[in-house]
Design a protein around this nucleic acid. Structure first.
Lengths: 329, 329
DNA sequence: ATTTTATGTGTAATCGATTACAAAACATCT
DNA sequence: AGATGTTTTGTAATCGATTACACATAAAAT
């Protein structure tokens, strides 16, 4: 691959002039510009980002940290991020952290080393302390998951309200024995959704029973199955389930079917996220829809604003309860 | 962020010595080494990848091109790639190309610009001509999808044989009217799987009927639903479906259920990929399992070999037919 | 024709690392 | 002590771009 000097030589000009052509500096005659462009084409030259970034201290690359690409929840968000980034002449790189601090470090270093201009973190298991530390020096935005005590701007939904509405929907249908399949409450979203669940129960004078609250370690289907299995072993069987994730809800649904029970007649289910699978189950899944694409766009816009040193405020987006067959036969 | 000069100054040595410490060059006294390491810690110094890469012309970053993160098929492969890469001191960056040539270009440029050392492409819709051109100068491996006419090393499975076995399984169960839900035959895997389908039919003296072969434009569920809807409109209804993708098969399953028909009694289905959701459907989906994790590991190993200028040969891995409820009630 | 002004181009420093080579420091042997 | 060899450290070039500043050239004003 040719470099700028060779282009300069071939075009019979200085490297400065070549650089000016590359950066569309106005002070270049049409004639010189043409010479340079011809040379560039002939040599098949492409400027090195390395040299450029080293000098400019910018890479126009955004890092997107996701805990795992297995969860379809992230797909639409990423589309939003990507579209917005490209519109602003940025590109994104997906980083599958696997919630592994060591891998996270690699990506944090990319920002420190100017290989990337900023980070959008969607990993609830990220080392918050480290992230907050990094955020004092580098542009960082949190998307969907965030640290309530930190100062990093975020975009998310009102998880408590969303959960409240989901559970209220079940109560309005006449359910009184409503179980909660929650993930680990070390995550803020898990705590908030639980708060919403409890708020709804209390508002309608229903007791919050520990035996109907189950915590999973992960979000994969199997954990939902396992949770449901345990819940079905309780002496008193719940008539409805609110699950903090569609993947868990789908696993639960599978387990209910395996026990010869019917959804929603025997047990109703509400999930969370509206992943595309949720419409493929039988029955289809009632779920809380987050504006994922918009969330992605917002996060990207916020990050770019931050990079360009504009003021950035956290944003709470709307959500929507999508009622389908798993609650209304 | 401090740079190497500041560290050198603080430690009272030259930048060369600092660099030697960083790179574990043996010719540094324990005493000097300690001084430098103290200075590094005090200044919180981290070497800049930009400066380093510019000089070394290596980034130890691998690019992984996927058409979309929506398809769970890629998840396990990526885990394999990632684990192998990390074991060899490489890191990976996921690039969601969306099968968009413009986005591809961005990532191709990253390699040209030494921001990445090589590419693993899993995008069937990639511009093969361009990829082959790039491969003459840069390390590139194809995973799962490949160009039969090109010279880029690949790792994949025997798609024709896998399809043949899947269809033979249906024939052995007594099916004679077997439809094929295929994706676009501009993709090699689609052509090969069709060849396997036809081979099985012919071997058992069954006619290949165009009316039972449907091509979809994409792999999302909805396309499977649509395909099935069309197939159910045929004057003669098939008794079995072979779908080249689990996602399409799941859409088809949904559509069959919607028509009040039963799987596998009325219509049996075989999918392809063994995505995790294929075990959550009702009935569970018979499917062809690819050794995805191993495929990822292999692809990464091949790429690293290629980068380090070792000889690399293409590899065909084994597959397995996983028989579940959608073919055996 | 000469000075002033505007415009286009080149020179050279710079970003942050690595490394060949030179030089210094130290050890070993007559 | 002086010569020689070995080990450690420093100097300076280099990677590929950008850009402030200087300089050259052309156009406009006197």
């Amino acid at each position: 691959m040719a470099n700028i000097q060779e282009v300069a030589q071939k075009a019979g000009v200085s490297v400065a002039t070549v650089s000016r052509v590359l950066n569309q500096h106005p002070a270049v005659t049409a004639k010189t510009k043409l010479k340079v462009e011809t040379a560039i084409k002939e040599l098949n030259y492409e400027p090195s980002m390395l040299g450029r970034n080293l000098r400019n201290s910018e890479s126009r690359l955004l890092l997107v940290l996701i805990p795992t690409i297995s969860n379809p929840f992230y797909t639409e968000i990423i589309n939003g991020i990507e579209d917005t980034a490209i519109m602003n002449d940025y590109n994104i790189l997906l980083c599958d952290t696997d919630s592994n601090p060591q891998r996270e470090n690699i990506y944090f270093n990319m920002v420190k080393n100017k290989l990337a201009d900023g980070i959008i973190s969607m990993d609830p298991a990220v080392d918050m302390e480290k992230l907050n530390g990094l955020a004092t020096q580098y542009p960082i935005i949190q998307c969907s998951e965030y640290d309530e005590r930190g100062t990093i701007p975020y975009v998310t939904i009102d998880n408590k309200l969303a959960a409240y509405r989901a559970v209220k929907h079940l109560i309005k249908l006449g359910h009184e024995k409503i179980a909660l399949i929650n993930s680990d409450e070390k995550f803020l979203y898990a705590r908030e959704r639980r708060a919403g669940y409890e708020k709804a129960l209390k508002e309608f004078g229903l007791p919050v029973q520990e035996k109907w609250i189950y915590h999973t370690h992960q979000l994969e289907f199997e954990y939902g199955q396992q949770a449901m299995k345990k819940l079905l072993q309780r002496d008193e069987r719940p008539t409805a389930i609110f699950s903090v994730s569609d993947t868990l809800a789908i696993g639960a649904l599978k387990e209910i079917n395996a026990h010869g029970l019917n959804v929603p007649e025997d047990i109703a289910i509400v999930g969370f996220d509206k992943i595309s699978f949720s419409n493929m189950t039988n029955p289809t899944l009632t779920t809380v829809s987050q504006p994922m694409y918009k969330m992605g766009c917002t996060a990207a816009t916020m990050l770019i604003d931050k990079i360009q040193e504009r003021q950035v405020e956290s944003i709470i987006l709307d959500h929507e309860l999508v009622i389908r067959e798993s609650t209304m036969g």
